[in-house]
Amino acid sequence: KLETFPLDVLVNTAAEDLPRGVDPSRKENHLSDEDFKAVFGMTRSAFANLPLWKQQNLKKEKGLF
């Protein structure tokens, strides 16, 4: 399991300012399950079932792209 970080560490943070080991294209993977659901309004599995373009739009909207 990946290390999780608080939302404010990941949202609207440039790649070079992210904690070590965080993939800038997969910031959402480093949210706790609770934060993930609070941000996206759905579970990880529901998010994973969305088309890629919709996932990317949601990530942009939430500052996690």
Rank of each mutant, 00 (worst) to 15 (best):
T13F: 04
V9M: 15
Q55H: 00
D17A: 11
S25C: 10
N29L: 13
G41F: 03
N49G: 12
F47W: 11
L52E: 15
L31Y: 01
E3N: 15
D33A: 09
L50A: 03
A15C: 06
E34K: 14
T43F: 00
D35F: 00
T13C: 14
V39S: 07
L50G: 00
W53M: 05
W53E: 14
F40Q: 05
D8H: 09
E28N: 01
G41V: 00
E3I: 12
E16V: 08
K27P: 15
G63N: 05
K37C: 12
S45T: 12
V11A: 12
S25R: 11
A14T: 13
F65G: 14
A38V: 08
L64Y: 02
D33P: 08
P6R: 06
D17S: 10
V39M: 09
L10A: 08
L64W: 06
A14F: 02
D23Y: 05
W53S: 15
N12Y: 03
F36Q: 00
F65I: 15
F40E: 00
V11G: 06
F40I: 05
D17T: 06
F5P: 14
H30L: 06
K59F: 01
V39W: 05
H30M: 05
F40M: 06
G21Y: 05
K60N: 06
F5A: 08
D35G: 03
T13Y: 15
P24T: 06
D8Q: 09
E34L: 09
L58R: 01
F40R: 01
R26M: 08
K1T: 04
H30S: 11
E3T: 15
K59S: 03
E34I: 08
R20S: 15
L31I: 06
Q55C: 00
F5H: 15
P51R: 00
S45L: 12
L7K: 09
F5N: 14
L52K: 10
G21W: 05
A46P: 02
L7Q: 09
F40A: 03
A38Q: 09
Q56S: 10
F36R: 00
K37F: 11
N12L: 03
L64V: 03
L18T: 07
A48G: 12
K54C: 08
Q55P: 00
E61I: 08
L64G: 05
P51N: 02
